[in-house]
Simulated scan of single mutants.
Amino acid sequence: MRILHTSDWHLGRSFHGVGMLPAQAEFIDRLVETVRERRVDAVLIAGDVYDRALPGVDTVRLLDSALERITAAGAVVVLSSGNHDSAARLGFGSALFERAGVHLRTRYADIARPVILPAGGMPVAVYGIPYLEPRLAAAELEVQEPSHFTVTAAAVARIRADLLAREQAGAPVAAVVMAHTFASGGISSDSERDLAVGGLGAVPLDLFDGFAYTALGHLHGRQQLREDARYSGSPLPYSFSEARQDKGGWLLEFDDGVPVSVEAVTWPARRRLAVLRGRLADLLADPALADAETAYCQVTLTDRERPAKAMDQVRTRFLDTLVLAFEPEGGAAGPARTYSQRLAGATDDLDICCGFLEHVRSRSAAQEEKGLFIEVLDRVREAEAAK
């Protein structure tokens, strides 16, 4: 029995204004190849299949195609909803989808209703915990004081009760639990959103003790919290903080209810990310940065004074620079002053204009710019005198 653990597809997401559907379609191509070549029996998607509650038409079509292709390649799909998904919309038609091998776990009522995977010997039961917003889940899960910990603990208790009933009935199963949450011990990155207003609302990892495997979603970096609990991470990088991460999922092999191997599966993206930092002239001349010329780039310039037309100059070499920041080496040239301080120290109208220009762009006015200011100010004075 082979199970492929994925999560956080975020279909429909854009990356600093660049649409990612073509890259996401390529990732799905590679996933389907993996299912076919490695004879995967089940694909898990542990939340955030979409990037927003109301996905676009093309995004829905991409998921529709992905589910059809995965099942045609011989695997069933178990999909739980994340904090980016609309659980009600994603769960539409779940009873019909189940007949085709696509099992949607978006309702609290289905938390203790596993997908049973025959595995030769002890079957594997996959339980899907949808994202639990504490205030919304508390009443249904009979929790008095809503928090990420209390609602997750209540959901896990339901799963344990179902496992106990199966064992007492003489039909034990090995439990795989899917959960879209921030489990203590995970390492976050910039593209995840807080699970709670004002904080991440982490849950302790020991809530999931005793299960054969816990397939976690929400954090975008693939990581192992312990041998039986892992984040698959997102299949593509969704922030520059993920530039050095290998993207993919985990391939598990079960034998008689026991995971005997866990292997990282990597799907390289067509376009890599590059994070560059330095003075403009150095970045434009450094031969070691040749690979970044075809990457999506985040560039931080450290020149003492902001270069003129900085983005235009950067893009003469790094055409797909999406983010440009300015952090002068050793701090900005000259003592840091607020705009009010600049105004207070201005000696004439020209000084005020040049000071404003320097304040908003972190570079003093060039001589030709000062000339334009002088010309405009002279015209204003002539117009006032004519009145």
Score class of each variant (00 low, 15 high):
residue 315 R to M: 04
residue 288 A to N: 02
residue 334 G to Y: 01
residue 351 D to C: 03
residue 321 T to K: 13
residue 313 Q to N: 09
residue 331 G to K: 03
residue 298 Q to A: 10
residue 325 A to G: 07
residue 296 Y to P: 06
residue 342 R to Q: 06
residue 324 L to Q: 04
residue 306 R to Y: 06
residue 309 K to Q: 15
residue 313 Q to R: 14
residue 346 A to M: 13
residue 293 E to A: 12
residue 296 Y to R: 14
residue 295 A to I: 05
residue 348 D to K: 12
residue 307 P to L: 05
residue 317 R to H: 11
residue 319 L to A: 14
residue 320 D to I: 04
residue 291 D to A: 15
residue 304 R to G: 12
residue 313 Q to V: 08
residue 313 Q to M: 14
residue 307 P to N: 05
residue 334 G to K: 04
residue 297 C to H: 05
residue 348 D to H: 14
residue 310 A to K: 01
residue 327 E to D: 15
residue 329 E to F: 03
residue 305 E to K: 07
residue 293 E to R: 09
residue 353 C to Y: 09
residue 319 L to C: 11
residue 324 L to P: 04
residue 312 D to N: 06
residue 303 D to T: 05
residue 337 R to N: 04
residue 350 L to A: 12
residue 352 I to A: 14
residue 291 D to Y: 09
residue 326 F to V: 02
residue 339 Y to C: 00
residue 310 A to C: 01
residue 317 R to G: 12
residue 303 D to H: 11
residue 289 L to S: 02
residue 344 A to Y: 00
residue 296 Y to I: 11
residue 351 D to K: 00
residue 312 D to V: 03
residue 316 T to F: 06
residue 296 Y to H: 09
residue 302 T to W: 07
residue 345 G to I: 10
residue 353 C to K: 03
residue 314 V to W: 11
residue 300 T to A: 03
residue 342 R to W: 08
residue 334 G to M: 02
residue 294 T to F: 09
residue 333 A to W: 13
residue 299 V to Q: 01
residue 303 D to M: 08
residue 317 R to V: 12
residue 338 T to A: 02
residue 331 G to N: 07
residue 349 D to L: 12
residue 296 Y to A: 00
residue 341 Q to W: 03
residue 288 A to R: 10
residue 356 F to Y: 08
residue 344 A to P: 02
residue 309 K to L: 14
residue 297 C to Y: 05
residue 350 L to S: 07
residue 351 D to T: 01
residue 335 P to F: 04
residue 302 T to R: 05
residue 344 A to W: 06
residue 313 Q to E: 15
residue 347 T to Q: 15
residue 297 C to S: 00
residue 352 I to V: 15
residue 292 A to S: 04
residue 343 L to M: 10
residue 304 R to E: 11
residue 310 A to S: 00
residue 348 D to C: 13
residue 326 F to G: 04
residue 294 T to W: 08
residue 345 G to S: 15
residue 312 D to L: 14
residue 301 L to Y: 08
residue 324 L to C: 06
residue 290 A to L: 02
residue 313 Q to Y: 04
residue 300 T to W: 00
residue 310 A to R: 01
residue 319 L to V: 12
residue 336 A to T: 15
residue 332 A to W: 13
residue 346 A to P: 12
residue 312 D to K: 11
residue 315 R to S: 07
residue 341 Q to P: 00
residue 299 V to T: 02
residue 303 D to G: 08
residue 350 L to M: 05
residue 352 I to T: 12
residue 314 V to C: 06
residue 338 T to I: 05
residue 329 E to S: 10
residue 333 A to H: 11
residue 327 E to K: 01
residue 343 L to R: 15
residue 330 G to Q: 00
residue 332 A to P: 13
residue 295 A to Q: 12
residue 355 G to C: 01
residue 352 I to C: 13
residue 348 D to G: 12
residue 309 K to S: 15
